[in-house]
């Protein structure tokens, strides 16, 4: 057997360090979330229990996250659906090589290099302008509910949704580019040749063939929205998303309930990813078997 060169051990050490940084924090939080009832925010463990999970589940502790959790989940699901739909349609459009396609692509992708926090601030500023306009219209036309109740158009499902889509759509579009780059147009021509309408071609040929990749886009869209903090920070109005709530709580909470929350949400994400990939491999297998 060949002896390994020294570089192997150097690189292996580097890789071990990488793994430690990647999973070490997660494992620490995981372990600390099972802290005993008398335990604190840091090691050592003071007994082992599910006390903090119970407390989180019952609510009323220092961490009140029910609303934020539901809001984040709804937002992430909506972002997921929109990302998949718009990316597929845009991907299809770009296959046609229309005039200005390259420019349009750069415009769509370039926003990724703008720092998220700047995007967030900018969207908030835009919405101030919109708010002012709405209030002015309310005054001019004497619309009562605007005058009495309207505060701001900022919110998770207006400005927040937009902010998240600025993040997920470029990625979704890039994935669809890669997918359609390898998609042989002969399949669609064959369908057309066999009498399929454009819609039938999409429904019975294109869509089933790209479906496994769409699951990837969906998972991407969901997780990007689910843990987005910087872009969310200025645009959610009076409401908080889960990451925002967590960020706020890390500075004020004094017990391991926050770790229980971290473990629970991480577990949720992992479960979702596993579910999606199981679905993808089932689709693949159905394709291969008779």
């Amino acid at each position: 057997m060949d002896t390994r060169p020294r570089s192997f051990y150097v690189l292996a050490g580097f890789f071990a360090l990488f793994l430690l940084f990647l999973y070490g924090p997660m494992i620490s939080v995981l372990v600390l979330s099972f802290q005993g009832p008398e335990g604190g925010l840091v090691f050592p463990m003071n007994g082992v229990s599910t006390h903090w999970f119970d407390k989180l589940w019952q609510g009323g502790g220092q961490v009140e996250i029910g609303g934020a959790l539901r809001r984040s989940l709804k937002l992430a699901l909506l972002v997921m659906v929109l990302t998949v739909t718009i990316s597929v349609l845009a991907g299809l459009a770009f296959r046609r090589r229309f005039r200005g396609a390259t420019l349009l692509l750069y415009v769509a992708i370039a926003s990724l290099i703008v720092p998220s926090i700047v995007v967030s601030l900018g969207i908030a500023l835009e919405f101030r302008l919109i708010d002012d306009a709405i209030k002015a219209i309310g005054m001019d036309l004497g619309i009562e509910w605007i005058q009495n109740d309207f505060v701001s158009a900022l919110g998770p499902f207006s400005s927040g949704l937009g902010a998240h889509l600025t993040w997920t759509l470029p990625f979704g579009l890039l994935i669809m580019f890669a997918v359609f780059n390898r998609f042989d147009p002969a399949y669609e021509e064959a369908a057309r040749d066999l009498g399929a309408t454009p819609w039938q071609t999409f429904r019975h040929v294109t869509l089933p063939m790209i479906a496994p990749f769409l699951i990837g886009v969906a998972v991407f869209g969901f997780t990007l929205s689910w843990d987005e903090l910087a872009r969310s920070s200025q645009v959610m109005g009076a409401d908080n998303t889960l990451p925002m709530q967590l960020a706020a709580k890390t500075t004020t909470v004094t017990d391991p309930e926050i770790y229980a929350l971290g473990t629970a949400t991480t577990g949720g994400s992992i479960l979702l990813v596993i579910m999606m990939f199981t679905l993808a491999s089932l689709l693949q297998r159905r394709r291969q078997r008779g």
Binding site: A186, Y187, E189, A190, D193, L194, G195, A196, P208
Partner: peptide
């Protein structure tokens, strides 16, 4: 005329069989 109305049928070089269908 669209392909299907010409009374022609084409066999593609790559065959273009739909991989997800039997």
């Amino acid at each position: 005329d669209p392909p299907a109305q010409r009374g022609t049928a084409m066999m593609f070089q790559s065959y273009a069989l739909f991989p997800h269908l039997s």
